[in-house]
Simulated assay, not measured.
Amino acid sequence: MSDEHLLEHVEDKVATITLNRPDALNAVTREMLKDLYDKVERLAEDPDVGAIVLRGAGRAFCSGGDVKSMAAGKDANASLETRAQTLRNRMEVSRLLHEVPKPTIAMVRGPAAGAGMSLALACDIRIASDTGKIITAFAKVGLSGDFGGSWFLTQLVGPAKARELYFLADAVGAEEALALGLFNRVVPDDKLEEETAALASRLAHGPTVTLGYMKKNLDAAISQPLAQCLDLEAMHHARTSQTEDHMEAATAFVEKRKPVFQGR
């Protein structure tokens, strides 16, 4: 795959990854998904990156998987087990976006459909333009769904609404998506880049070590019992109390100024 189909830019502690197939509404290929995983994994370890933004080029976030390659039947001769395991390996990118110890932001312009929806929902925060749409889309192509969309959607809107959205595959516009909690913010289309940059910069310059532990707490809260979550919170709270960022915040409070966090 040409690197031009997946662009990366780092500025002011914010890494922006752009799905760059605008003529195909940024439909993702296998090579793009592998490259996306590699980029997110590397950026997660980069001390000069405090937040990761995922976006699409042009008028769409991502229309899902590349239907043309599906129609070509690249896996036609592979066994069911091989096809399932190969897909499962590619789907790890959703888990990575969801679990990396740095804030991940999906900047959604236009449709986020199918696997594109799943990638957007995998991120911690979704900021959308007023053109943003969420579409499960899988039923329209006779597929049950992948990349964790059923899990993320159920967590966000509950099982009844998730079933409706999966079965009917109707488009959910920006304002409805905001009301359902699928989008965190909706802004005018011409302000999307500006608002996303401001949000990402705010997070990237925050106490990033602490934000990583917050993510661990919040992920655990989805499936773990209260007692285990309390144990985890106690350990992480004690750990973050030893960070330089906490000491800086305490000093800044006494001195009546804003803290300057270093991510340490």
Rank of each mutant, 00 (worst) to 15 (best):
A174T: 01
D48Q: 10
D190H: 12
A84T: 02
M117I: 01
F183R: 09
P111R: 15
M70N: 12
H9W: 11
I135P: 01
S201H: 15
A51R: 07
A234Y: 14
Q85I: 02
L6W: 00
E8H: 00
V14M: 14
N89I: 10
G212K: 05
T29K: 06
T208A: 06
E8Y: 00
F261L: 03
G73L: 08
S69W: 12
Q242I: 06
K258G: 04
D35C: 02
D66N: 15
D3Q: 03
A160W: 09
F138P: 00
E176N: 04
L143A: 12
P259R: 03
A162L: 06
E11A: 06
L230M: 11
G58F: 08
A115E: 14
V53R: 09
A78T: 07
L199P: 00
A112C: 11
Y166W: 06
D12A: 15
A106G: 05
H98M: 10
A27V: 04
F253A: 14
R109I: 03
A177C: 01
S63R: 15
T154I: 11
A115K: 09
G206V: 01
G149Q: 13
G173N: 07
R88P: 01
V49G: 08
W151K: 15
P47R: 13
E92G: 09
T104I: 07
S63W: 14
D48C: 02
L43F: 05
I105P: 01
A128D: 05
Q224I: 01
A78W: 07
R264Y: 02
H98N: 14
R95P: 00
A122R: 00
A160L: 15
G149E: 14
E248I: 03
F167A: 09
R126T: 07
A71M: 06
V108D: 13
A24R: 09
G148Q: 10
M70V: 12
D48W: 05
S129P: 07
A177L: 03
S150M: 13
A84P: 00
Y37C: 02
G148Y: 14
K216F: 03
R126C: 08
A128L: 06
A57H: 03
S150L: 15
E92R: 13
I125D: 03
P103D: 15
V157M: 10
R126V: 11
D38P: 00
A227V: 13
A197H: 15
L119C: 03
E45W: 04
K256D: 10
N77G: 08
